[in-house]
Amino acid sequence: MVTGVADVLQVENLTTCVATRNGIITAVDNVSFRLSRGATLGLVGESGSGKSMTCLSIQRLLPSNSVVASGSIRFKGEDLLTKTPRQMEAIRGREIGMILQDPMTSLNPVFTIGQQVGEVFRYHKNSRKRDIRSKVLEVLNRVRIPAPAERYHSYPHQFSGGMRQRVSIAINIGNHPDLLIADEPTTALDVTVQLQILHLLREIQQESGMAIIFVTHDLNLVARFCDDVAVMYAGRIVEKGPVKTVFADPKHPYTRDLLAAIPRISKSGDRLRPIPGQPPVMTNLPKGCRFEPRCRLATERCREAYPDWVAQKETGGGLRAGRRQWGQNDIAVHRPSGRS
């Protein structure tokens, strides 16, 4: 695939290490993906799979015990890893927005909604002081908060969970970012409200063309909301591609088993087939494929070496072995070659 000019974000071989009491762990290991304007990438995985660390690496917001060891993160053509902290401050909140799981903790309880939404305009000094209020009202309106003028002086605790999440979206889209990182934005919300929030994000995306990285453990939401999906396991991406192909015809045993392990209403008569065991401890990773201890298809080869990327044409062409070949119509699977 040609390197699209339209790519907002290109992450290449990102590796992030964390120093823990039990040694150095590679929380993000050789992760690559790209995201074009207006597209949505679902980053799915279980806790500890490295999805949040990937997002923090992109924003250069890693905790002090962590560091990006190698790789590149090109945002609108420029490598974010070469930026100074001050340059990053100018990018975050203006060109890259971030929504977190729990709006009760990401909003400040002692400031009004108006003050908190207005902060992004004040901080980036791109608005005249007297325009800020009208800008805040406009953006609150865009996230469909009813009667924004009345709510301007309300505090976060006076809002419901869904409304608080709308406020944090307002804060993050105020400056029309090119990329929005949404880390489990709906996990703390009731199921009927989850869809409303995703619907809102989709509307904003269609108006503004921002790209979204949607981090979640909920495959149901990915199926509805994302164009592409990358499945992470123990720090690595094990499978990625368009949602349609990956979910309809998952190639990696982990993706397959994960999809089979989720209860679904339409299939609730069948017994679920759980994945045995549990994810590996990051300080003591298997030498070969990280999913091997839990994999039904594992062989001696899987124990010995980590598999190479294998890309497959959606059109049903044969397997092509190679490293990191993917594109619009390819799905990339990460497994030992020679098995179909």
Partner: peptide, 15 residues
């Protein structure tokens, strides 16, 4: 809300 047919309802959100 919980039972999207995976792979079919891609892109359709909102209820």
């Amino acid at each position: 809300a919980v039972d999207s047919t995976i792979g079919e309802e891609v892109g359709r959100v909102g209820n």
